[in-house]
Nucleic acid binder design. Structure first.
Lengths: 221, 221
DNA sequence: AAAATTAGTCAAAATATTTTTACTTAATTT
DNA sequence: AAATTAAGTAAAAATATTTTGACTAATTTT
């Protein structure tokens, strides 16, 4: 017989790894908040997926709310990073306009959690994003770049129109995001599966065509 | 001294009115679910706003979930009703295309709760809308009507293009809804107040122009 | 190597939220 | 007018969810 009774727990030898644990929690939390929104997200699900325990969330982040904030920051940091690679101002305006649409479309398509976080943040009426001066600052150059693109395209006579850059930007984003944000309801309404890759390829072509036609750029048809 | 002690409560004479109470709960619940989503909605807030008590929600609807379903049904019933008034097929295709965009844009603009309910339903991945055959059925005629409009416009030579009706529909909805669904984050990003009526008037013109230009209809400029 | 720190565990406390029980009485039916 | 039904209330039970306390041991620091 064993000599225990005073040793009820079996704390199996565990390694310690702060960076990994913190990163794991954050990564898992991105998925949880994106998938369920702030109110729908469950601390318990996060700890289970991160194979840690609730105490760790308080240890590393302070609480559910602060964890959400860290997640929001992290997804914005990611897109900001990618946007930096898009350097407008050097190539043909028509081509750059096309690149703008394609980049936006593809980024949203490939980074589902970004749009989902944004959708939830808007459900909260921007409660947390409003606190972030960083996001405001990071975005301005992009809008400015679009403005310059419109300017060049129009000056060169290649764009038939000279729209307000903000309107153009909102349109590009809308055409790239709406079908993803509303795949469930729109899919039901139109009786098609909008998550099907083939559907999305079609959508991409359509979005590009709408924007370029609007600008008055000739599309090769 | 008073003769109470056995009469601690003061049930002040209250009138009874089933229809009114039920309708009041539903109406208040539309706002609550639209504003906070399913998980963010609070039964207590609903009862307070409806000036009744939680028991009534169970009495009339069965629970929070069933109440949500009733709300979803009700907002869809409302738009279905209005859509019925749009009768395509009689007038000039260019004009009807414009009417399509303007109707969609204005309906969304005037019925904020509809888009908000849809935004949340998509956050839930269409959990409830998928159960509703009604919505599927009600929407098909509208898509068909758009298909016929495209057909007529193209046949008459007035539309330069003949897009897939579903793509066109999604585009119209996207251009009309995205800035509302994402007013908080987009507003922060572009540094403008997208809820400002003047901004929305500008947006409306832009949306109409994008769609009509895409179709190749001459806009009076 | 002892001391200090902090990553990590477990369980329970604190809170928040929904749902039900037990009861009261207005309105309706017989 | 008595009996029945169902609208309505209050309070608490049930549940769900977040947060904290008390402890253990791995790692780092002295």
């Amino acid at each position: 017989m064993s000599r225990d009774d005073g040793v009820p727990k079996t704390p199996p030898v565990r390694s310690r790894n702060p960076e990994r644990t913190r990163a794991e929690i954050l990564s898992v939390a991105v998925r949880e908040f994106a998938e369920h929104g702030f109110h729908g997200a469950r601390v318990e699900r996060i700890t289970k997926a991160a194979k840690c325990n609730a105490r760790m969330i308080y240890h590393y982040f302070g609480g559910k709310e602060q964890l959400y904030l860290a997640v929001l920051d992290s997804v914005y940091a990611a897109i900001r990073n990618r946007e930096g690679q898009l350097r407008f101002g050097t190539a043909d305006p028509g081509l750059e306009a096309r690149r703008l649409v394609e980049f936006t479309f593809d980024y949203f398509s490939e980074n589902g959690d970004f749009l989902k976080m944004i959708r939830n943040e808007n459900l909260l009426n921007g409660k947390y994003i409003k606190r972030s001066q960083m996001i405001r600052d990071m975005s301005q150059p992009f809008i400015t770049a679009i403005g310059e693109l419109v300017e060049r395209g129009h000056a060169s006579g290649q764009f038939a129109r000279k729209p307000d850059p903000v309107q153009l930007y909102v349109t590009v984003v809308a055409l790239s995001a709406h079908h993803l944000n509303n795949a469930a309801t729109l899919g039901t309404v139109v009786g098609q599966d909008l998550t099907d890759p083939a559907w999305q390829v079609e959508r991409r072509d359509h979005a590009v065509e709408v924007v370029l036609t609007y600008l008055g750029v000739e599309t090769s048809e």
